[in-house]
Design a binder for these strands. Sequence first.
DNA 1: GTGAAAGCGCTAACAA
DNA 2: TTGTTAGCGCTTTCAC
Lengths: 354, 354
Amino acid sequence: MPRVTIRDVAARAGVSTATVSRALSGARPVSPEVADQVHRAVQDLGYSGNGIASALRRSRTDTVGMVVPSVANPFFTSLVENVEYALQQAGRQLFLCSSRSDPALEAQRLRSLVARQVDGIVISPVHGTESTEAVAWAAAELPLVQVDRYVSGVPSDWVGVDDEAGMVLVMDHLAARGARSAAFVSSRLTNSSTELRLAGFRRHTERLGIAVDDEHVLLGEYSIDWGREGTARLLRSRRLPDAIVCADDLIALGVVQACSEAGVEVPGDVLVTGFDDIPFSALSAPPLTTVRQPQELIATEAVRLLQRALEPSVVEPARISLSPSLVVRASTGPAPRQAHPGAPVSGTSGRRPR
Amino acid sequence: MPRVTIRDVAARAGVSTATVSRALSGARPVSPEVADQVHRAVQDLGYSGNGIASALRRSRTDTVGMVVPSVANPFFTSLVENVEYALQQAGRQLFLCSSRSDPALEAQRLRSLVARQVDGIVISPVHGTESTEAVAWAAAELPLVQVDRYVSGVPSDWVGVDDEAGMVLVMDHLAARGARSAAFVSSRLTNSSTELRLAGFRRHTERLGIAVDDEHVLLGEYSIDWGREGTARLLRSRRLPDAIVCADDLIALGVVQACSEAGVEVPGDVLVTGFDDIPFSALSAPPLTTVRQPQELIATEAVRLLQRALEPSVVEPARISLSPSLVVRASTGPAPRQAHPGAPVSGTSGRRPR
DNA sequence: GTGAAAGCGCTAACAA
DNA sequence: TTGTTAGCGCTTTCAC
C-alpha cells in the first residue's frame, strides 16, 4: 500500500502542505475551520506522518540512545526503566542498546546511534580504558552523559553513586557485627565502580583493623556463577573469613547459594553483603544485606543533565555523586524477631535455633 | 560544530557525492584508487554518515521495534536479549520500548515506532482485547510478529510456547508427586498466555481428579508481591491445597517466600510450581520446579518470521507453538540427596530434619 | 493566516 | 566506472 503523505492530506483538505504541517505540529496558528478540515482529512486517509522525514528536516529526532553492558542484569534494567520514564516525561523516546559487556560491540552501538542522529546518549561504559576511545568520540559528536560507571578523561557529565561511601556503610556495619576478617568477591578491574569499590574495601578494612588475606580478594565477573565459583575458592583456602563482601548482588546471590550448598551457614558461619539492592536480593535465603542505589534519582539526574547538554549554552561537565544507603537484611544477622515485607527472615535460614 | 556531510567528503576526494555513496555502501563497484581517496577523505574529515537521510531516501531503516509489557520481568529481558542477538546477525538493530503493561502506553509506542519507520515490529501484547486495535493497526502498516502472548483476530505471525502443554507437564508431575488438590495463582485474565494456562490447569486437574476449591483460583498480576498476597489468602482459607500452581515464576517466588515466612514448608506442607524458568527461579529457597520456555528458539523464530514478512511475497500468517520442558527442582521435592549446580537444596529449607 | 519554494543529506535512475 | 539529476516527506523561511 502506498503510504499516505502530507501532500495527500493537503490535497484532501484543500490547503497547502505547509498549512497541514502547521495545523498538526501547532508550530504556528491556523484558523479553526482549516484546522478542522485538516484533522478530518487526516482521519479519512489514516495519515500518520513520517518521523524520518521530519527528523531530517528539523535535524532532531526527539530520541535518546542508551547503552548498557547488559539487559539481563536487574540493576541496569531498573536504570533503563527509570531513564525511559524520565525521558517520556520530557517528550523523548529511548533507543536501547546492549553492549553485552563487549567494548567492540559497544563502539558499534555508539556509531550506530550517532548515525541514527539521536539527540543524545546515556551510557554506562563497559570498560575503564577500552571504552574510552568510542565514548570520547561519541561525546564529541553529541551530548552524552555517563551513568553508574564512567571512563575518565572524557569531558562529559556523569551521575552515579558514591561507591566509596557505599563501602564505608558496608564495612562499618560488618565491623559492628564483629567481623575481624573479610574477603572481597568482585569482577576484574575493568571499570570505575569496580575499582572504587575495591579501593574502598581496602581502605576501610585497614582503617577498621579487619584482616584481609591476599588470596581472599577474588576478581571474576558480575554474575551469579562467579559468586559460586568465588565461594568454592574461599572454601578451599586455609580459613574462611568472617565476612564475604561482594561487589554486586548477583555475585552475593551466588555466594549465598554456594554457602548453603556447602553447609556453611549465612550469617552464622560467615556474613555476606551485596551491592545495588536488586529486587531479588530480598528473596534469597537468607535475604541480602546490601547497598541501595538511588536509581530514580540517578535516572532523573541523568535526563536532566542531558537536557541541559542539549541547550546551546556550553557549560562545564558535571559529576554528580549520589549517596547510597545500607539495607540490612538477614545475611549479616542477627535475624530480627518479626518478619516484614521486603526483609523476611524467619524460617529461611538453615540451622538457626528457633 | 557543523556536521560534515557526504558533499564535504566528495569535494575533498574530488569525486561526486554519488561515487562517495557507492564507495561507502558498496552498492556498486568503484575503482580502487577512487575508493582509496574516498576513505582517506572520510578519515580526514571524520565523516560518519547520516542514517536519517539515508533512511528517508531508501525508505528503510534497518531497525526493528520491539514492545514488551515490562523490562523488569526477567522473562521478557531474556526474550529481548535473544531477539536483539538474532537481529544483529541479520544486520538489523533493535529499538526497544516498554509498554509498562498499559494498553494506552502500548498504543502510543506503536504509533511512535510506525512514525519512526521501523522496518518491522516484534510485540508481546499487554492485553487480550484492549491491545487489539493498536496491534491490528500497526500490523496493517508494517510487518509485525507477536511473541509469547497474542491478541486474536489480527492476521499476523505468532511464536510462543504451547501453554497447554506446559500445564500438562506441571499437572502430571504434581499428580505423580501425590497432589490430590491444587490452587492456581495467576494474573487477571488479560491475555492469551494467562487464559491458556488457566484453561490447562482446569482441564488437567479435572482429568487427573485433582480437587480445586473455587476460592483457590486467585487472579492478580504477574509479580512477586501478588504471589505473597495470594499466599496470604490461601492461608486464610479453610484448608491449604497439596499444591500451589503459579502462572509465572515471579508469582511462585512470592509464594515460596510467603510460605517460608508463615512457617509453611515447601515442599513438605505444600508443593509449588512456577512457569518460565527465569534465572532466579533456581535461587529461591527452595529452588522452583518450573516450565522452561525455549527462549532462544522463540527469538530466532520471531526474527525469521519477521524477515519473511519483509519479503514482498505475501504469505499466510504463521502460528508457531513451541514445546516447553519441565525443570524439576526442590519446590516439588523430595529433595535430591546431592546438591548440584542450579538446583541446590540442602540446608536451605526451614524445619526439615537434617 | 496562508502558500510557494527551497532545501535537510542521501541514493537510485539515467546518461555518458 | 563515474557524474548529473531528481527526489524521499517534511518544515520553514519569505512573501503576501
